[in-house]
Every structure is written in structure tokens, then in C-alpha cells.
């Protein structure tokens, strides 16, 4: 970095001294001397420019090596860390989907077992009431006793099954550990990429300085904002509670809609 600053200072001081000399030479009427000075000025600038472009290229090359992308390799896509990260995130989507479906399968299998028990208990309860009110014949009571016994057996069987399904639901949540690890790795990679990009941007800004290129940031930003399509949707808001333009829950939505006359 110190080297870069020295370079930039060098450019500035050369510009200053040459500019003064240029005016003096011109005032003396020495046109060919003036042209010679302009030529020298150009050379200083070009030298700086080449150096900066060279550094930028080297930095780009480093970045490529860091991310294990060999542009010459036909398998560049497969070996790059970014492609790997894409695969990893795909794995997260697959795992979470599998777990959600497994959990829902188990819930859907459990619901009828509970319904069966509830229905049988309801029937027994009605008949048991009749028995307690002495509204039941001996013949009917024998039938009731048989159904109670059957119910007890069925209850135990269903409870065992439900307990096993609950256990499976619990186990289906093991994706959290695995996907958590994968996401942490990808997050670290994104931070790395951001760091390297920042370095490249810094390098490029030195090139801009020598080349005299100026970027209108405001305009770039407004152009990017225009390219966003609000109706495409943005997905979940992460910091909903800290933002004014985002609702923080269903109550907020209801308030907003009722303020609109809903």
C-alpha cells in the first residue's frame, strides 16, 4: 500500500513541477520544449497506469487461484468453491424439504390413530353413562365389557405407535445440525469473497486515478434501484423489527389493511 501511495505522490509532484515548467517554457515561446514536456507528463501517467493495471491483474489472478478456479480447465465449474457452495446450499434445501415432508408424513399417520381412539372413547363413554344410570340390560353390558377390553388393548397399541412416531418426528429435526454446519461454511466463503472483491475494487480505484476515470456513484445507484422490480417479491425480511417500511407481524398487516379501509 505504501508503494501505491508513493506512486500516487510521485505522479502528483511530477505533474506539479512539469506544469510549472510547461507554463514557463510556453511563456518563453519554446513550443517544441513544451511538447517535449507534455510527452514526459504522458509517460509518467502511462507508467503509473501500467503499474496499477499490472497489480490489478495480479490480484485478479490471486483471487482466481484462491477460489481454485482454473479458467483453462474444462471442469472449472466443478472445482470452484462457488460452485461447491451452490451445491452445499442445494443440499440444505434438499435436507430441509426432506425433514419437513418426513414430519408431515408422521403427523398425517398419527392423526387417524388419534381420531380412532377419540371416536371409540366417545362411544364407550355414552354407553358407560347408560350403564351408570342402570339403563343397560345384562346382554348389553356383556357387549360393553367386551368393547372396553378391546379399547384398552387398542389404546395401548395406538399409544405405542404414536410414541414411536413422536420419536421419529424428533429425529427428523437432525437436519438442523447438518444444515447449520453447511450454512456456516458458505457464510465464511461469502465473507472471503467480499474481502477479495473489496481488495480488487481498491486496486481498480488506483487505475481509475491514473486513467482519470470518474464514476458517478449516485447515478449507478439510481440505475440499480430502477432495475429492481418490486412486484417480483423480496422474500422474508430479516430485520423486520428494525425497519420502518416493513411490517413486523400479522397484527401490523391487519392494522395497515384496516387503515386502508379493509
Amino acid at each position: 500500500m505504501a508503494y501505491n501511495e508513493a506512486n500516487a505522490l510521485d505522479l502528483e509532484s511530477t505533474l506539479k513541477t512539469h506544469a510549472r515548467e510547461l507554463i514557463e517554457t510556453l511563456e518563453m515561446g519554446n513550443v517544441s520544449g513544451a511538447v517535449q514536456l507534455i510527452h514526459e507528463l504522458n509517460q509518467v501517467r502511462d507508467r503509473g497506469l501500467y503499474q496499477e493495471v499490472g497489480k490489478l491483474t495480479r490480484e485478479l489472478h490471486n483471487a482466481i487461484v484462491n477460489f481454485q478456479i482454473d479458467p483453462a480447465s474444462p471442469h472449472a465449474q466443478e472445482v470452484s468453491q462457488i460452485a461447491d457452495a451452490t451445491d452445499r446450499l442445494g443440499y440444505v434445501v434438499k435436507m430441509t424439504e426432506k425433514a419437513a415432508n418426513r414430519t408431515m408424513d408422521l403427523v398425517e399417520e398419527s392423526t387417524p390413530l388419534l381420531g380412532e381412539m377419540s371416536q371409540a372413547a366417545q362411544g364407550l363413554r355414552n354407553d358407560w353413562g347408560r350403564f351408570m344410570r342402570r339403563e343397560m340390560s345384562a346382554e348389553e353390558f356383556r357387549d360393553l365389557a367386551r368393547r372396553v377390553e378391546q379399547f384398552l388393548g387398542q389404546s395401548q397399541h395406538n399409544a405405542d405407535q404414536l410414541s414411536a412416531k413422536m420419536n421419529d418426528i424428533l429425529l427428523a429435526q437432525d437436519y438442523q445440525d447438518l444444515t447449520g454446519q453447511v450454512i456456516k461454511k458458505v457464510t465464511a466463503l461469502v465473507a472471503d469473497v467480499e474481502n477479495s472483491l473489496l481488495k480488487l475494487v481498491l486496486m481498480a480505484s488506483h487505475v481509475d486515478r491514473f486513467a482519470g476515470i470518474h464514476h458517478d456513484r449516485e447515478q449507478l445507484r439510481s440505475e440499480q434501484a430502477q432495475q429492481k422490480e418490486p412486484s417480483r417479491g423480496e422474500g422474508p425480511q430479516i430485520h423486520a423489527d428494525k425497519r420502518e417500511d416493513v411490517v413486523s407481524g400479522q397484527d401490523d398487516v391487519d392494522d395497515l389493511l384496516s387503515s386502508l379501509g379493509f
Binding site: 423480496e234 411490517v247 395497515l256 386502508l260
Partner: peptide, 23 residues
Amino acid sequence: TAEAKRDQIIEAAQAGVNGYVVK
């Protein structure tokens, strides 16, 4: 939907939605 921007909810209301539930 997970879309939770006020502008979006207003947009949906203007487009004639009957109810809006955020995920």
C-alpha cells in the same frame, strides 16, 4: 406470503386482494 413491505401490502390491497397473511 413472506413479503412484508408496507408498499407490497398496499399494492396487493390495490390489486384487489381479499386477505393478506404474512409467513
